[in-house]
């Protein structure tokens, strides 16, 4: 493997890592605050992709500028997060915060099953492919290999913006600080008058919107097909568990590890590429049971 191939594998890896991070960060945010592992997260990803692909397709077909695809991605993901994610939290999850962990996971599993069929009923089963956003940005030649600017530049930049943005939001704004307070100690936060219900709702909507945003960005590069959510869930679980539950920066680094691991596998041992996320997760958890950046759990006596 020479330097050129090394560089190529690196570029492919970060583009993929950026998408994985965007989805996983929403999941880890929700877990950090609500302490619920949300299986339906994959559905938000898929619905973000479907909503973007279908609306952008209609906009371009109607003769409007393909640049509108970018604002459309943000609008579509906010709508999915708010209109689907909001009611899921308010009507369903709110009833189960006191239940056992397994019941909570199963409730989100049930939501996932229901949303799978909702997608089929709304968007049908034929693949959607809408790459206007990718086409308008053109291509970049690196070391004799053609890349799309969308994957090589835009996706990593967006991922970094989201990472930095989330950090600033959580550390330096009032709403962010409230979220952190609830994460730290729910009862104490309630006692000092924080509206925990509201914090939960906002967090869930933001997390779901991030998943949908990941789907929206992915829709320009891939076919939107039934079942795309199921694969994404398992992958983002692997990222979140490897990173340490609730660790946002950890999710970024783990996504990068998995993205690079996968692309190097395609160069060196193509048959291994699907195993990479799980092997990384196993290796990390066997050495650090609480994940790369997780904190050890204090046990109750």
């Amino acid at each position: 493997m020479n330097l050129q191939l090394f560089a190529l594998a690196f570029f492919d890896g970060i583009a993929y890592a950026a998408l994985v991070f965007l989805v996983a960060v929403g999941l880890t945010l929700i877990f950090g605050v609500l302490r619920v592992l949300n299986v339906a997260h994959g559905s938000f990803y898929a619905m973000g992709a479907y909503a973007t692909a279908s609306t952008v397709g209609a906009i371009v077909a109607a003769g409007y500028s393909p640049w509108l695809a970018f604002p459309m991605m943000i609008i579509a993901s906010a709508l999915i997060g708010g209109l689907i994610g909001g009611p899921v939290e308010k009507l369903l999850l709110r009833r189960i915060y006191d239940m056992e962990e397994v019941l909570q996971i199963l409730v989100t599993f049930a939501v996932f099953m229901i949303l799978e069929d909702v997608q089929r009923l709304v968007w049908g089963v034929q693949p959607y492919f809408e790459s206007s956003a990718l086409m308008v940005l053109g291509t970049v030649d690196v070391l004799g290999i053609t890349y799309t600017a969308y994957q090589l530049i835009l996706l990593p930049v967006v991922a970094i913006l989201v990472l930095v943005g989330l950090r600033i939001f959580l550390r330096h704004t009032l709403s962010g600080k409230l979220i952190l307070a609830v994460t730290e100690d729910r009862e104490a936060a309630t006692a000092i008058g924080v509206n925990v219900d509201r914090v939960y709702l906002v967090t869930f909507v933001v997390g779901a919107s991030l998943a949908a945003f990941g789907g929206a960005l992915a829709s320009a590069t891939t076919s939107v097909i039934p079942g795309m959510g199921a694969d994404m869930i398992v992958l983002s679980f692997a990222v979140v568990a490897t990173a340490g539950l609730g660790r946002i920066e950890g999710a970024a680094i783990t996504a990068l590890l998995i993205g690079l691991g996968r692309s190097f596998a395609v160069y060196l041992a193509p048959e291994l590429d699907v195993l990479v996320p799980y092997l990384i997760m196993l290796a990390v958890l066997l050495v650090r049971p609480e994940g790369l950046f997780g904190m050890a759990h204090t046990r109750k006596i």
């Binding site: 570029f11 290999i145 890349y147 694969d231």
Partner: peptide
């Protein structure tokens, strides 16, 4: 080259880079 990306793979960028090389 022989690539068998997993069924339903959303992204073939790495395979395509290699094929270009």
């Amino acid at each position: 080259a022989e690539f068998f990306p997993k069924f339903g793979a959303p992204d073939f960028s790495t395979e395509i880079s290699r094929l270009q090389a």
